[in-house]
Design a protein around this nucleic acid. Structure first.
Lengths: 335, 335
DNA sequence: TTGTAGGCGTTATCAG
DNA sequence: CTGATAACGCCTACAA
C-alpha cells in the first residue's frame, strides 16, 4: 500500500527521482541516491501501482484472450501458449469464454476496451466481420485472429492449415487402399470446416473420386455431433470403408456409435480424426489423426500481437502452421 | 477514445453530471439532461475508462486465477466455473500458470498485486504457507484457496473431499469382492494426495485389511507417473486383483502398462481412477472413477471470493464438495 | 438539479 | 543530478 510519495518522503527526494529509479532510467540519478531509494523501497515493501501508471502511459501490459470455451479440449493448449508467451514479454492474459455467442463476444470486447487491454488474441465465432469487429479496428485496438478465419482481407491471424491437414490424411486413406470414404464435417458456416472439407475434396479429385459417390454429414464439432452424424450415416447404409472426421471429438463420437452397432474399428471401418487432442492417443483403438500445433499457434499469435502493440511491422499478416499426420491404429489397409 | 470531458462539453454540462449518469445515480439528474447525455454518449461512442475509475475507486473488477497448468485436463473445467461466475458478477479473470513452481507463484502474486486485482482464486503448489502467501494476507488481498489445502487454520477455501471420494471407491472395490488392492498415490508432500490416501486407508481398516499387506507406490499425478508406478508394481509381483489410483491420468498410465504386459482389464486386474476427466469415459475399458465437481468448485470458490471482496461474511470458511462415484467398466466382481 | 475543486498514483515536461 | 508541476480520466465531497 506504500506509494511513490511515501518512498520519496522517506528517502528525502522528490517523487520524480523515485520514478526514475522505478523505471530504471540509467541517467539522471546518482548511484548513491539510487541505492538509498532502492533500500527504502525494500523497507516499505513498495510496489508500483500499475493502474496509475497505465492511466498515464496508456499501456496496461494486459492482453485479452477471447475463445469459445476453455473447457473444450482444443483450447487449453492454445491458452497455455498464449499465456506463456505473454508472460515472457511481461504481459498478463484475461480469459474470456464466448460459447460462440455473438452477444458475449461483443460484451467481452467492450469490457476489454474499457479495461484498456493492449491487444486481443481472438478466436471469433462470427463471420463475416460484424459491427463489433469493425469497431475494434476503428478503435485501433491491435488484435490477432486465431484459428478462425474472417472473410476480410489481411487481418493478422494465425491458423493451422486445415486444408493441408485434411488433404494429408485423406490421401493417407487412399494410400491405405480405401476408395469409399465418408466424411463428417464441421458446421458449414465455419470457415475452418470449409477449409478442411476442401482439403478432403482436393484429395478426392486427385484420386479421381467424384463427390457424388461420397457420403457427407455435418456435425457440431462435439462428441454428440459425431454420434448423430454417424447414426445418420449408418442409417443410409454402410456404403464406405472409412470415415474421415473433421475433428477428433466427432471421430470419438462416431467410433462409439460404430462400436455400439457392432462394427469393429479398424477391421470393419477405418476412422480418422483431426486435432490430436490428448485423449486420441488413449482411446482404443488409438486414433489416427492430424496434429494441430496448438501451443505453437497460441505462442505465435501472441508474438504477433505483441509486435503489433509495440509498433513493429509484421513480416506476414497471415501465418499458417502445417499440421502433422499422426498415424496410429484406427485405419486398416484394405486389399 | 472519447472521455468524460468530451461528453460533458458536447452535452453542455459538467463532468460531474456526466459521471452521475454513468454510474446510474438516480437522484441528482433531471430526466431531460440524462436523456441528452445518454444520447451524446452514444454519438461519441463513449466508454468509461475503467483504469481511471479504478484509480479512484480502488476496485478493478478483475480477479486473478492462479493454477498449475491450464493444459492439465483437471483445470479447464475449474477455470470455466471461475470465469462464468466472475462474469455473472461483473468481474474478469487473469489466468496464471505456475507449473507448480514457487518462483512463478510469487511472481504472479506480485504482478496481480501491482495490477490491483480485487482478489485471487488460488490453487497453490506451496505448502506450508510461505512468505509470499503471508504477504498476501498482510496485504489484505482477498483470496480463496482451491483444491489444495494449506496447513494453516481457516483460510477460506473450496475443496473436493478427496478423503470421502477415495473411501467411496475403495469401499466399492471391497464390495466387488477385492481383497488384495494395490494403491498408486500422488506425490507424498501434496495434501490432496494425503487426503485421498487416508480415505483409502480408512476403507482398508473398515474391512480389516492391514497396511502391511498392501502394495503402495507413488506417482506424479501424470500418465508417466502411473506408468512408472505400475511398472514397479508389476516388478514386485502381481500380488493384487485391483489397483486404486489417486487420479485418472495415473490410472490411464497404469492401464497402458498392464495392457502392454498382456493383462486384461478388468478380467485380470481391476483399475480405478479419481477425477473423472473427460477421457475416462472414452478409453476402453471405460474407467470407474470418482467425479470431482470441478466446474462447481470453480464457481463456489469465485462466489466466496466475491463475497469476501464485497465485505460480506462467509457462512463457511472451508467448503468441501462431495465427489461422486462413477461406475463404469474397469472393475470386475471377483468370486 | 447542477457545478467546482481536489485527489487517486504515476509519468512526462521543463526548469534549476 | 534533481525537483516542481501538469497531466491521465474519473469520482466525490462540498457548494451553489
Amino acid at each position: 500500500m506504500a506509494t511513490i510519495k511515501d518512498v520519496a518522503r522517506k528517502a528525502n527526494v522528490s517523487i520524480t527521482t523515485v520514478s526514475r529509479v522505478i523505471n530504471n532510467k540509467t541517467e539522471g540519478v546518482s548511484e548513491e541516491t539510487r541505492e538509498r531509494i532502492l533500500k527504502v523501497m525494500q523497507d516499505l515493501n513498495y510496489q508500483p501501482n500499475r493502474i496509475a501508471r497505465g492511466l498515464v502511459t496508456k499501456r496496461t501490459n494486459t492482453l485479452g484472450l477471447i475463445l469459445p470455451d476453455i473447457a473444450n479440449p482444443f483450447f487449453p493448449e492454445i491458452a497455455r501458449g498464449v499465456e506463456d508467451t505473454a508472460n515472457i514479454y511481461g504481459y498478463n492474459v484475461i480469459l474470456c469464454n464466448t460459447d460462440d455467442r455473438t452477444d458475449k463476444e461483443e460484451l467481452y470486447i467492450n469490457v476489454l476496451k474499457e479495461k484498456c487491454v493492449d491487444g486481443i488474441v481472438f478466436t471469433s465465432s462470427v463471420n463475416p466481420v460484424s459491427e463489433h469487429i469493425k469497431q475494434l479496428m476503428d478503435y485501433k485496438m491491435p488484435f490477432v485472429l486465431l484459428d478462425r478465419y474472417m472473410d476480410i482481407d489481411h487481418l493478422p491471424g494465425v491458423y493451422s492449415d486445415g486444408y493441408d491437414g485434411m488433404y494429408q490424411i485423406t490421401r493417407y486413406l487412399f494410400e491405405m487402399g480405401h476408395r469409399d470414404i465418408a466424411y463428417i464435417g464441421g458446421p458449414s458456416l465455419s470457415a475452418t470446416a470449409k477449409h478442411r472439407y476442401e482439403g478432403f475434396e482436393y484429395a478426392l479429385r486427385e484420386y479421381g473420386v467424384g463427390l457424388d459417390d461420397v457420403l457427407i454429414e455435418e456435425g457440431n464439432y462435439k462428441i454428440s455431433g459425431g454420434k448423430e452424424a454417424m447414426a445418420r450415416l449408418v442409417e443410409k447404409g454402410m456404403d464406405f470403408t472409412a470415415v474421415a472426421c473433421a475433428n477428433d471429438l466427432m471421430a470419438v463420437g462416431a467410433m462409439e456409435v460404430l462400436k455400439d452397432k457392432g462394427y469393429r474399428i479398424p477391421e470393419d471401418v477405418s476412422v480418422t480424426g483431426f486435432d490430436d487432442i490428448q485423449l486420441s492417443g488413449l482411446i482404443e483403438p488409438k486414433l489416427t489423426t492430424v496434429a494441430q500445433p496448438c501451443y505453437e499457434m497460441g505462442a505465435v499469435a501472441t508474438r504477433m500481437l505483441i509486435k503489433l502493440i509495440e509498433g513493429q511491422a509484421l513480416e506476414e499478416q497471415e501465418i499458417k502452421l502445417k499440421p502433422r499426420l499422426v498415424i496410429r491404429n484406427s485405419v486398416k489397409r484394405v486389399i
